[in-house]
Design a protein around this nucleic acid. Structure first.
Lengths: 191, 191
DNA sequence: GTCTATATCTAGATAGAC
DNA sequence: GTCTATCTAGATATAGAC
């Protein structure tokens, strides 16, 4: 063979990594296969050795993204008591708002997910429920767990939709303070 | 003239109304000018008698949408004390989640707004601040006002991103209960 | 596995007839 | 103001050479 055993895997990994960033920044539909491939130094035609269609890439991409987010947010058994508070602080940061390419998929691709097929949405649902369950155990309130997730996603959407830095920061800070004031098991311990 | 004085205005109105629904349902970028025009019984070429570009339509559309939402959510001086609670109940309804075409723009087009120019985002910012100010006065807490808006938008994104009706309803109900339990001036009065 | 070339389709936008 | 026809550009996807 002209290429090493690991070559295909590595290309696929690079393609996924690069596509995730590009799609989160500019939208998935709005980005062409050529652009995705040239971002890893290849041409458009080579794409179809890795995925049967652009849609298949979307599915793989969302699965990977949700897996990552959900693992990070849910946290392990060894996570500190203030794990949720830490997640909220990071999620609701200016850095996150300013860098969609390395952030959560939901604020950027949520609408495209909503329009996607049942398999994609089932993947998203599984991951969300995983986070919600974990947070529910930590904060001692299943409703609050869903509400925290919603609050985070919504605040990011708003923060990115406004024009001024001032308002952006205000939205994020207000969300953080609001959640800090909510009485939940571990939220009031210092992050 | 071959067309009545009011003809152009009416066509423009119909175009805007139809485009709003279509864009909120399927995304703005993903929908072509031909589709928008044929939805009001015209052909693509006629579009450019009403807007200089597709982007100009987007700007007009977002402005109109945000104006409507913001007027509705902010409410007049004669609004009842439980105005905010009523808004939350309607916003966080299954009906809203199932009918993006007649709902708020932010959950569906928030990401596209984030990628748009400064003018569009400034419009959005103005409208959001209007709602926030009004709600802040009503609930007596500026942070809570931003948080409520974020919670609403985020919950809708999540509700539409999941696959099962059960989880969708759970997310919306949890958000409603969480906000009901938050102690704010008018939130605990029956909606 | 990747390349170039290409087929096919759809997009935004313009020109000129009516 | 709207139509048809068309230009140009970009998209997804395939074919065959290397």
């Amino acid at each position: 063979m002209r290429y090493a055993n690991t070559h295909k895997d590595e290309t696929r990994k690079k393609l996924l990594a690069s596509s995730r960033a590009i799609a989160k920044k500019g939208g998935f539909n709005s980005t062409g296969v050529d652009a995705l491939m040239s971002s890893i130094g290849l041409t458009g035609g080579a794409f179809y050795s890795h995925f049967p269609s652009k849609q298949a890439l979307f599915e793989a991409l969302i699965e990977e993204e949700m897996q990552n987010s959900s693992d990070m947010l849910a946290g392990g058994e060894d996570s500190p008591d203030n794990h949720v508070a830490k997640c909220l602080r990071d999620y609701l940061s200016t850095f996150h708002a300013m860098h969609p390419e390395v952030g959560c998929v939901l604020p950027t691709l949520g609408a495209e997910i909503a329009r996607a097929g049942p398999e994609v949405r089932a993947t998203v649902e599984r991951a969300l429920k995983h986070t919600q369950k974990s947070w529910s155990a930590r904060v001692g309130d299943p409703d609050a767990a869903w509400a925290l997730i919603a609050q985070c996603v919504g605040a990011l959407v708003l923060a990115r939709a406004v024009e001024s830095d001032k308002t952006r920061k205000e939205i994020l800070a207000s969300s953080r303070r609001f959640l800090d004031n909510a009485q939940m098991k571990d939220l009031n311990k210092k992050a």
